[in-house]
Nucleic acid binder design. Sequence first.
DNA 1: GCAAAAGTGTTGAGATTACACCCATGC
DNA 2: GCATGGGTGTAATCTCAACACTTTTGC
Lengths: 225, 225
Amino acid sequence: MRQRHPWAAVDVVIFRVDGRALEALLVKIKHGPFRGRWAFPGGLVVLGEALDEAARRELFEKTPIHDVYLEQLFTFGDPDRNPARHVVSTTYFALLPASAAAPRAGTKYAEAGWFNVKRLPVLAYDHNRIAAVALERLRAKIAYTNVAYGLLPRAFTLGELQRVYEVIPGRPLDRRNFRRKILETGLIKPLHRYRRGAHRPAALYAFRERRLAAARRIFRWSDLG
Amino acid sequence: MRQRHPWAAVDVVIFRVDGRALEALLVKIKHGPFRGRWAFPGGLVVLGEALDEAARRELFEKTPIHDVYLEQLFTFGDPDRNPARHVVSTTYFALLPASAAAPRAGTKYAEAGWFNVKRLPVLAYDHNRIAAVALERLRAKIAYTNVAYGLLPRAFTLGELQRVYEVIPGRPLDRRNFRRKILETGLIKPLHRYRRGAHRPAALYAFRERRLAAARRIFRWSDLG
DNA sequence: GCAAAAGTGTTGAGATTACACCCATGC
DNA sequence: GCATGGGTGTAATCTCAACACTTTTGC
């Protein structure tokens, strides 16, 4: 019974919305056949470690913040996705508020940086496929859940929220309709505080719950195409 | 670098709609700590084998038909889900038409049989959790895709189709509204043939495409619970 | 003739979209 | 005073849900 089987690994796609762009965190690989190529952070699961733990470990190595939205995405297991050995990788996606700490490369990778998801380079392994799946999932999910909370700080203006809801599907929304609909969902609540800035002060809101909740749809059907 | 890591495995939840019940295929385990308990068929992934291949292999051992709808569900990786060794299992769900061949136990299992998903026994491993996730996914997916094709023969009546759409969420639908909506989606096409039976002959239909396609929603929001 | 499933339209309520003007602030 | 983003309401259209009676067949 001394058979060999593929090992389990995790990879994590970390998203943030910076200004008007959706970005993902990439790391530059130091060793092996993909040396010098960008990839999503990841690694083998340690014996006795739960999958989510492994994903959180990889995530924490890059950005030392807790209270991160983390969701399992898909498992990729083609034998040739990793030329070194057959590895079955379960991918996760994580959402960070734009304000979160800068990424650190750690000892494992040469560099780390944020990339606009619209202009990702050719990645190592099958990671461009992973990127596509992650983006698709995020787009689908923002339309009928409160996942957006993961991309925003505790308090935010409706304008900031709308920008998240526009950047991810990549199309503009009517401001009046957006405000009405998002308030009707009950996902967010007014804080009765105001943010002063360069212009008219904006009312601050917070998500009622900072864990996944379903809601009625915010986009129309045709917006999901 | 002679580290040990969890192995990859697959488990497959096979559904069918038999008359008025949604059923899943269970096998009885022959050996090990869960001997005598029911579980979904599954096993370790062989080195060099793609995940889907492994799932298809497990599926084919039970019901020798091709052209089966198969979709990856979720990956479970808690270290204690299998007391023997840390195994990370990627689960799949498969859909069979009711007419499909009877299940065979094979050599690996003591027995195989169909169980109403509403009355599943206590299963081995974390398989009751898997059942819950599979059911949730199937319910969500039938509402906005043509997955139902996997549960029906090539040609079917609108009555048969409606029964599938009622059994899975577990609530009745208005016949007139159902027929109008399902025809509006364009997912199915009339065959201009009729099935004769005990009663008035019914027009036969077929799915326009026998691969996953999205459609506008067939249920109302509140029907998704 | 009767039991059982097939077939067929309309109406009211609610949801969705499109759309334009004034307000508060910093500079 | 002007540029920038914040704030607000209404009307037309579309979608959704509710609902009942007739038809065709096998027995």
